[in-house]
Design a protein around this nucleic acid. Structure first.
Lengths: 208, 208
DNA sequence: AAGTTCGGCAAACACTTGTTTACTGAATGG
DNA sequence: CCATTCAGTAAACAAGTGTTTGCCGAACTT
């Protein structure tokens, strides 16, 4: 890659980073082009060399954020099959992920139902793909015998939604002004309990 | 109430309605005082006769939105005890509620993780109170014998969260440009399935 | 070495913004 | 009936906004 492209990528990075940083305490719809370029150390006009819109920057952030999420989900699904172990690992991995990628998680959580349609749709589509991935993994387990693909999808959605909620809860605990380690422990306990309850229900499910 | 107060309330209503209307496709943080007053047919300065902040208007909208939610939750909990019936009724009531109070539901869904802390906290607190209410109702059922209050709370949270997610899903289906009745049916089916799965897991839970 | 591409800039465009000010005039209460 | 209260107004403030323009100069191509 030429030095030309490299410098362009660097500016693009600066814009994305500045955006992500500013989105710590405001949402995409209230972000301004000038605000971002100022924080990135560029002139306002430079923005348009990279994105047509702020919505486009948002979509780029979605892609970035979800790439790291994909890695996470795979690390949960791979490994021991015991339901208990998978659940415990899932909760741990989620907590660690929120810790490592706090700005991205915050962005996703905030914009999932936020004011910018393009971004909302991008997140939703990708979350659907997660559910499909989880569903495929579930289908491979012996406990899924006799389960239709429709049921498996609904089950996977339930798991994914639970994980997203858990991540959001961890996030809120981390952002609280008085960081309380007890709160995190309680969230982890609740998540473990709830996931266990779901998988228990699944084992006792006999046809729909 | 004097005619004086009545007129004031009318203006306040106009501001709240205008705000709620504008929040259909943007979020609170990006709303402007002038924007609201313009839509309400008042002068910008008039806003400050009613609210010190836009955040305050947001909190007022939260209270309004949650009042109607409380009514809803009670109508679910009251009535036949059969788990199946409760679940089916819950899904129906949620769907109807979203239909009847679309702007409020949208507002709650959007601002639950939105950019205004005051509003986020107000929603969260009230949602916690819902969970407590559901937990209290669960405690009365015979199936809760041997369940600690902690477990009941986590279970109630799981139910409430599921309901909120379901409401959000219904909302998104209603807002889709091509209104697809099939999508709503699918959401209702998924919600029923998932709630059933949870209550099945609950019945087979033996201590934590 | 000459010519082209193109990322970044400063400046200008025409608005929109939040908030305060001094005011008006109808409802209120004595 | 007269004084007071107070919701609502118009006007002004100093900023801030998105986007376009023409231009520069370093990196590429031939």
């Amino acid at each position: 890659m030429g030095a030309r492209q490299a410098q362009k990528q660097q500016s693009r990075r600066a814009l994305l980073d500045a955006g992500l940083h500013l989105l710590a305490d405001q949402n995409l719809a209230s972000l301004g082009v000038r605000e971002v370029t100022r924080a990135a150390g560029l002139s306002p006009a430079a923005f348009y060399r990279h994105f047509p819109d702020l919505a486009a920057l948002g979509v780029a952030l979605v892609e970035e954020s979800l790439a790291s999420l994909h890695v996470m989900i795979r690390s949960v699904l791979a490994g021991g099959d015991g339901a208990e172990e998978v659940i415990d690992r899932a909760v741990e991995v989620i907590e660690q992920h929120v810790r490592d990628h706090r700005p991205h998680v915050r962005f996703l959580s905030r914009e999932r139902h936020g004011g910018v349609r393009q971004v909302r749709e991008a997140i939703d589509a990708e979350l659907g793909r997660f559910a499909a991935e989880v569903g495929a993994a579930l289908a491979l387990q012996p406990a899924s015998e006799g389960w239709g693909p429709e049921d498996l999808r609904m089950l996977a959605e339930l798991y994914v939604d639970r994980m997203v909620s858990t991540a959001a809860a961890f996030l809120e605990a981390l952002e609280a002004p008085d960081a309380d380690p007890e709160a995190e422990r309680r969230i982890a306990a609740a998540a473990g309990f709830q996931l266990r309850l779901i998988s228990l229900g699944r084992r006792h499910w006999h046809g729909s």
